[in-house]
Design a protein around this nucleic acid. Structure first.
Lengths: 249, 249
DNA sequence: GCCCAAGCGTTTACGTTGTAAATAGTCGTA
DNA sequence: TACGACTATTTACAACGTAAACGCTTGGGC
């Protein structure tokens, strides 16, 4: 196919990040076939396939072979459903062997964690905006690394590597900004690529739409090039060296 | 009040960024009182006050002293309304004198532009997630600098300063990621600060909730410190030096 | 075998949303 | 005065989130 495959892309690996515990949908009615995990898994795979707007309580119900109202016995409401989905997707990190390797090298840890989250983002492009914009549990919890468990282990790791409290916190915050910016833009671009376009995509400005913008017209090929993987890598390295100089202050 | 005031915060300046052309709402019924600009302005100030969930066609109508269906003569539908709001808010940049100063120094230009967008984000914290996540006009248009006019002038400016096509495009993309990550996190934290909390905010984990996370409990004061302005500044400088080394390749 | 409490999913119902279609009011011009 | 053209209202409908009441199944004590 292509010379190099993006190792974080779903097709680039044996789908190690897509560890959905989802029971198969429509497993027939009857009691006992429903629980919180099944519901969240179904919701996630539904959004992965059809997008966020297609996720309604009733549609999710019928996707699971059940009436919409049945979901309310396991989930307090739609917002809680969304929060639960975000939590489940973020916790896919725990199933990622590349991330879990422990290491005394904080830079190595940072790189593996970053790629782990990138893998999640690319595996669930339609869901990532939710990860980015749902109100976090506390104002000091920053997407996308928005689980208390991961925050704790992240900060622990950096303190163990000699970072001061201040520096560890700064590292968490800088890391969050970096990931959020890069991944949100990456999935939004990719979501538009494979998004809902059957026709020649009337949303995309054709060459004729750029008449007032000669430079854009000239740069369009460059702008359309997809160097996400390389850019992500080099920005990550920039962050690492920045954190190095930030060092122990 | 406080030693130093954030110059990008709405209270930090004479509200120069909040140039809403909004006609006063509820200006009485009768024909001729409605047009696209009024509608978008009303929608924006409504979201600024009550949040995105409160923005409904009918509620916006009655806010403007009109029946909800009247809006459809000027706006094709709700999605187009949201897109229009995003466009209007981004175009507030054109009314910002600090940004419009021309300069042969690309770094200076970048800094002024960055602060201009930060000002917009802080002036409309509830709206910024929309700026970040609405599908752009084309996959190669990246929020938050998502208007073709601004893209054109941004790229022009960098090319005039000696950047190659490639480097100018890379600068645009790096700039976008930087802004999106920082500003989205900043407004989300601030939105939670002044958000819908009347009681002691049950959403925020109290100290007792952090029992399983001793390090978090210990670092909570540091994590809650708001150094957004300084962090933004220093990350911006990091970006500038990065673009310098990226230079002309 | 019988009953009953508990748990699960369905049914019914209500208010709200986005939006299409038909309607009525207003105003400049012929 | 009559007439289009705009403009805003009214009416209508399907889909949504969710509360409340309702049956159905099931397992345990007598």
């Amino acid at each position: 196919m292509n010379a190099k495959v993006d190792p974080d892309s779903p097709r680039g690996r044996g789908s190690a990040a897509a560890v959905l515990p989802a029971a198969e949908p429509g497993a027939g009615a009857g009691p006992g076939n429903l629980d919180r995990r099944t519901i969240l898994g179904g919701a996630i795979s539904m959004v992965d396939r059809d997008g966020l707007r297609a996720l309604t309580m009733r549609k999710l119900g019928s996707y699971l072979g059940v009436e919409g109202m049945a979901l309310y016995r396991y989930v307090p409401g739609r917002d809680a459903l969304l929060d639960g989905m975000v939590e489940v997707v973020i916790d896919e990190l725990y199933g990622d062997p590349d991330v879990l390797l422990s290491s005394v090298d904080w830079a190595d840890y940072l790189r593996r964690l970053a790629h782990g989250i990138r893998r999640i983002a690319l595996a669930h492009p339609q869901l990532f905006p939710l990860i980015a914009t749902r109100p976090p549990a506390a104002p000091w919890v920053r997407p996308p690394l928005r689980s208390l468990r991961w925050m704790e282990s992240f900060l622990q790791n950096f303190r163990d590597c000699g970072f001061t409290d201040r520096a560890a916190v700064a590292a968490y915050q800088a890391f969050s900004s970096f990931l959020l910016g890069h991944l949100l833009l990456e999935v939004s671009a990719q979501g538009a690529d494979i998004g809902p376009m059957d026709e020649p995509d009337p949303g995309t400005p054709q060459a004729s739409d750029l008449d007032g913008y000669p430079l854009l017209k000239h740069l369009k090929p460059l702008l359309s090039e997809n160097r996400s993987a390389e850019v992500f890598e080099s920005s990550l390295e920039l962050l690492v060296t920045h954190l190095e100089t930030l060092g122990k202050n």
